[in-house]
C-alpha cells in the first residue's frame, strides 16, 4: 500500500523530497559538532562519503540486510571520526576547520585511488530489498535524527557540549572533560553523516568520491548557518530550503547559483543568527498549549 502511495507521487518531486530528508539528516549531524559544540568542521562531506562507501560495499560484497547496513555504516563512520577526532579536536577555530578540510581531501583522494571503491569510476549500488520503499525509510531516519538531536540538546550531555561552545575554560572548571566530549560529539555527528551517506548511496544507486568534495561540505554548513547555528528547527528548515532551492531556481538556469549566493549574502547581513536562530520553539509551543512545567520547576514558578 505504501509502495503504491509512493509510486503515485511524481518521481521528480519524490527525488526532491528524498534530497530534503537526507539534507536534514546531514545538517542535524553537522549541527551537533558545529552548532552545539562550536567546533567548525569544513570536511563533513568526508563522513558522508565514508558512510556511503561503507554502506555500498556492505551491500555489494556481503549482501548484509539493508537496515543492518545502515546502522553499521553509521557506526563505522563514527569510529573513523573518533579516531581522527582524538588528535585534531585539540585544535580550535580556523586551525580545526583547515584540518577537517584536509581530512576531507585525503578521504576523497584515497577513495579515488582504492581498488575496492572502484577508483574514479565510482560504485553502482543495487536498490535495497526492503519491505518499506526507500523514501519512507529516509523519512523515518530523518524523524529519528530530529528526535535524537532534540533529546541530545536538552540533556546533561548536550549541556556539556553547549558549555564547551560558550567557554572552554569555564566548562572544564565545571568538571567537564572537554577532550572526551568533543570526540563524542564528533562521533555522533559523523554517525548521522554516515547514515545520511548510506541512504544517499542506496537511493541514488551510484556514488563517486568526487560527489563528496568541498562544495558538499560547504552545502551542509550553509544549511545550518541559514537556519541558525545550534537550532534544530533551523537546521531542518535550512536543509529543506537549500536541498530544494537548486531545483526550484532551475528556471533561472545559469543565474540560479548567483541568486542563491545573493540570498545567502542578504541573509547574513539582515539575520546573522540565521532565520530561526535564537528562537526556543519548545517553549513557544508549550506556552501556547498552556502546558505547565513539572516538579521542581513548577515549585519555582509558584514561589514567584
Amino acid at each position: 500500500m505504501l509502495q503504491g502511495f509512493v509510486n503515485s507521487i511524481d518521481p521528480y518531486f519524490l527525488q526532491i523530497l528524498v534530497n530534503i530528508g537526507i539534507g536534514i539528516i546531514l545538517a542535524l549531524g553537522l549541527n551537533i559538532i558545529t552548532g552545539l559544540t562550536g567546533q567548525l568542521s569544513l570536511g563533513h562531506a568526508a563522513f558522508m562519503s565514508v558512510g556511503a562507501f561503507a554502506g555500498a560495499l556492505l551491500t555489494l560484497k556481503t549482501g548484509t540486510p539493508f537496515y543492518l547496513t545502515l546502522i553499521l555504516s553509521g557506526l563505522f563512520t563514527a569510529a573513523v571520526a573518533a579516531l581522527i577526532g582524538w588528535p585534531i579536536l585539540r585544535l580550535t577555530g580556523d586551525y580545526l576547520a583547515i584540518c577537517t578540510l584536509g581530512f576531507a581531501e585525503i578521504v576523497k583522494v584515497v577513495f579515488l585511488n582504492l581498488e575496492i571503491t572502484n577508483k574514479a569510476l565510482g560504485l553502482t549500488v543495487p536498490p535495497p530489498q526492503t519491505a518499506l520503499p526507500m523514501p519512507v525509510i529516509v523519512l523515518i531516519v530523518a524523524i529519528l535524527t530530529i528526535i535524537a538531536s532534540t533529546f541530545i540538546q536538552n540533556s546533561r550531555f548536550g549541556r556539556a557540549l553547549k558549555a564547551i561552545r560558550d567557554d572552554e575554560i569555564a566548562a572544564e572548571s565545571m568538571g567537564i572533560n572537554i577532550a572526551r566530549y568533543k570526540v563524542q560529539a564528533f562521533a555522533v555527528s559523523a554517525f548521522m553523516a554516515g547514515t545520511g551517506g548510506c541512504l544517499y548511496a542506496h537511493f541514488l544507486g551510484y556514488i563517486n568520491p568526487s560527489d563528496f568534495g568541498f562544495l558538499k561540505s560547504v552545502d551542509m554548513l550553509s544549511m545550518i548557518v541559514l537556519g541558525g547555528l545550534g537550532s534544530i528547527p533551523g537546521a531542518v528548515f535550512g536543509a529543506s530550503i537549500l536541498s530544494a532551492a537548486p531545483e526550484f531556481l532551475r528556471f533561472m538556469s545559469q543565474y540560479r547559483m548567483m541568486v542563491y549566493g545573493a540570498l545567502m549574502v542578504f541573509l547574513m547581513v539582515f539575520r546573522p543568527n540565521g532565520l530561526l536562530g535564537g528562537i526556543n520553539f519548545t517553549d513557544l509551543v508549550l506556552r501556547k498549549l498552556g502546558v505547565r512545567p513539572r516538579g521542581a520547576l513548577r515549585n519555582l514558578e509558584e514561589k514567584q
Partner: peptide, 9 residues
C-alpha cells in the same frame, strides 16, 4: 548519564 542518557531521556 551521558550520551546514552540523552538518547534514553
Amino acid at each position: 548519564w551521558n550520551l546514552t542518557g540523552a538518547l534514553l531521556k
